[in-house]
Design a binder for these strands. Structure first.
Length: 551
DNA sequence: ATTACCCCTG
DNA sequence: CAGGGGTAAT
């Protein structure tokens, strides 16, 4: 194989290493500012969720196996609202006062429900709202009892020391005290039914959407996250559905597709020109969201729909919608970190691939096996193999392949101390970074090392064999020294070693012979003098090494 | 301080 | 062949 033929072989690899649209693919490593913002928003929303009074809406729809304390704490109100009667003794102990009359319970439940619907003070946890609610109603009952006792006492004592007017005023005050409670009761009687219906509707809608989300999650088993990773799990299996909410959910997903897609992919895909995986981001993201799903309410309107509708139902829809969006966003932020990780991993993996190929001198093909590399990326994405290899090599800054190593070794027959200019000319198909340059320099350093070791070894061997005259030392193509060198730099023996190299080798051997015979080897860095001589014997590298096309 | 090289080790 | 420490030149 002459240099020309070999150069043609290199040309193919040069295409692979150089043609890879660097900036474009490097840009894929940049964190997406949009995603960053969204994830940040999702974090905010997430936090806000816990503070939303509507939180129980989603919590209620959780499966019975849910172990969230939050769900349990908020269950009684929902039970009262929907059933309007005490639960079976088996399902509810006497924690709440079920011994009260059912009418009282119903009123209380209504009050709770209304307050739950009205209260929107952020920062108040759901359980806090409920507990305060209980306190409130209990307090009202207590006031009534106190008033009764007080009245009885007054009757028994004959109004005591109070004057008649005082007594009347006192009774009026008592009436004022009692009024809030009575007004409270009566106010919720008339609009109560509407609100109740709204609640029921809200319940049904939310449950339907919740179920839709669950079904999507279940349809993507491979993407399921650890079920134990979240405290609150949405596992409602009710058969109801809502087209309206479903549509909104779908719209939300689609609206986020373009942004989310690249981040849910693994490392290999992140290096590809095309942004892959368009067909599955929504599922993926939604599924993962079951994890962060504790709450449904956002700080700001997400969609046009939510901004336009102010009624309870639309608010409820909006909650679900936003919940879904938050699912998407949280997942997106998760995926971003994951991709960041996998991208890093991809570099390491590919580095190994490349390193291995570089270390196998017997390999005559392109060092980075496209098949091997392709096996690293997801099967769903169809990409062009060559471009993938190109991009991979470029992005990794590891453009030096086995062929480059082979070429460098052949170059050693001409130059033992190549300048950086020569290296750049001969490896013009490589993106010259500091790392690449260092690697090439190191290669030639290693070549020289082996070269000088062989020279020293054969020089000493000649001395031991009693070679008296340095002129008797020759390096021919049949010599042991040449065979050793040729085996190292031209193992395939498909390259015609120039005669000049034989001459330089002979000179080097003699230099070592002389130095050793003069016991120079006892001095420190005695080889440097030899290096100084040999470095001047470099020849020009043939054009075939510099311009593969012309060959 | 940086760079390049040598030398040794794995 | 790569990595790391040491050294000398710039």
């Amino acid at each position: 194989m002459n240099p020309s033929a070999w150069s043609k072989g290199m040309y193919s690899s040069s295409i692979i290493c150089f043609d890879g649209c660097p900036a474009e693919h490097l840009s894929s490593f940049q964190p997406d500012p949009v995603l960053s913002d969204v994830s940040g928003a999702s974090a905010t929303l997430h936090k806000d969720c816990d503070n939303q009074k509507m939180l129980p809406e989603s919590a209620y729809y959780s499966g019975g196996e849910s172990t969230s304390s939050l769900i349990y704490s908020s269950n009684p109100p929902r039970d009262n609202t929907t059933r309007m009667h005490p639960p079976p003794a088996s399902s509810s102990s006497g924690h709440h006062d079920w011994n009260l009359t059912s009418g009282h319970q119903a009123k209380r439940a209504r009050v709770e429900n209304i307050i739950k619907g009205m209260t929107s003070s952020p920062g108040v946890h759901c359980s806090d709202v409920m507990s305060s609610l209980h306190e409130k109603t209990d307090c009202m009952q207590e006031n009534e009892k106190i008033q009764e006792l007080h009245q009885r006492h007054m009757e028994r004592s004959g109004t005591g020391s109070m004057s008649h007017s005082q007594t009347r005023k006192h009774l009026e005050n008592q009436q004022h005290v009692r009024q809030p409670g009575t007004r409270f009761k009566y106010v919720d009687e008339v609009p109560e039914r509407i609100k109740l219906m709204a609640d029921v509707l809200k319940y049904e809608l939310s449950r339907a959407v919740s179920r839709s989300v669950d079904s999507i999650f279940k349809s993507m088993p491979l993407l399921q996250t650890s079920p134990n990773s979240e405290g609150t799990v949405e596992t409602d299996t009710s058969p109801q559905s809502s087209v309206c909410n479903d549509n909104k959910l779908r719209l939300s997903c689609c609206g986020n597709k373009e942004v989310q897609v690249p981040d849910v992919q693994t490392e290999a895909l992140s290096l590809v020109v095309q942004k892959p995986g368009l067909e599955r981001p929504d599922k993926f993201i939604l599924q993962s969201r079951s994890k962060a799903h504790h709450d449904p309410k956002p700080q700001f309107p997400f969609s046009l729909e939510s901004a336009l509708h102010e009624d309870q139902q639309s608010r409820s829809n909006n909650i679900v919608h936003q919940h879904a969006l938050r699912c998407l966003q949280d997942r997106r932020s998760e995926a971003k970190f994951k991709t960041f990780d996998t991208r890093w991993n991809s570099v390491k993996v590919s580095s190994k691939v490349n390193a291995r190929s570089v270390r196998s001198p017997l390999t005559n093909t392109v060092s980075v096996d496209p098949g091997l590399l392709e096996s690293l990326h997801l099967p769903h994405v169809k990409i062009e193999s060559d471009s993938f290899v190109r991009n991979k090599l470029y992005v990794l800054n590891e453009g030096l392949t086995t062929n480059h190593l082979k070429k460098a070794k052949l170059m050693f027959f001409y130059t033992r101390y190549p300048s950086s200019l020569v290296l750049k000319m001969c490896f013009h198909d490589v993106q010259f970074t500091r790392c690449i340059t260092s690697q090439l320099i190191k290669w030639f350093s290693n070549f020289r090392e082996f070269y000088y070791i062989q020279m020293e070894k054969f020089a000493r061997h000649a001395l031991m064999e009693g070679v008296a005259d340095v002129r008797d030392l020759t390096v021919g193509r049949e010599s042991e020294l040449f065979r050793a060198l040729n085996m190292h730099y031209n193992k395939a023996n498909d390259f015609q070693v120039p005669n000049r190299f034989l001459e330089v080798a002979e000179i080097t051997l003699r230099e070592f012979y002389i130095a050793i015979s003069m016991c120079k080897d006892r001095e420190p860095s005695w080889k440097k003098a030899i290096y100084k001589v040999i470095c001047k014997l470099d020849s020009d590298v043939p054009d075939e090494f510099k311009h593969p096309h012309s060959g």
